[in-house]
Amino acid sequence: MTVVDKPSRVGRIHAAFERAASEGRAALIPYMTAGYPDQEGFPAVAQELLKRADLMEIGLPYSDPLGDGPVIQKAGEQAILQGTSTRRTLQFVKELRPTTDVPLLIMTYINPVYAVGPEEFMRLAADAGVDGLILPDLPPDQDDEIRDLATRYGLGLTFLIAPTSTPARVQIVTEACTAFVYAVSVTGVTGAREGGALNEVPALVALARQHTTLPVAVGFGVKDALTARKVAVDADADGVVVGSAFIAAVKAGQDLGALADDIKGGCVKGG
């Protein structure tokens, strides 16, 4: 899917999945809240993850993150308190952009997008070097303009499906995605949970594949090699998204690179 001249943003996203697949892996997609643990520390944390990442999600912190569990909530609160605004988040992307070819995706809620104005937001994001957007509280049928604007500014769009999604919803959501499809592993918010979670993932990924040829990545609750393997191998997903576990590691002062290596090991298809 690489384009002749410069790869397009959406092309860059698809190429990243293809490269991981060609290496026999599900793509590792770390999530990190912009400006976490603080403005000075964020670039180093991001680089540590980018070294291992196939794609990367950067969270634009929001005051009322309905889809997030306590770990990402607190990281966002802390980042906002320390002045991580929309513009500062996009500035971080701008600073990372020349250092990496890894696709950079902004994950945020719809209100910050509407506040700046959807078109202005897309323009600023494209300018900063963002490749795609993930908006967990925007079901695609709620806003037709967003999709047209994303197309116009060349940004990839990812919407979410969940274990509760009916085939009709999966159809609507997958049709609206241009970057990849994000399958939420459990009914719930982001963050690790105890017990037999992830059991519903294989069926969900299979359902998605009936409706789309786009890559299908799975997130929510992946925290280590074992849970990554469940997603990458048992469910045969194309990508594994990990957020809360990395944030918790930063908070605890653990070795982020080692954790990312470990999880990346779990993404290997044969293993």
Binding site: L66, G67, I110, P136, D137, L138, P139, Q142, F159, L160, I161, A162, P163, T164, S165, T166, R169, V173, V184, T187, G188
Partner: peptide
């Protein structure tokens, strides 16, 4: 109005 919620809730 509308329905700006995580997709998990749409079927509900």
């Amino acid at each position: 109005g509308g329905r700006y919620v995580p997709e998990t809730l749409i079927p509900a």
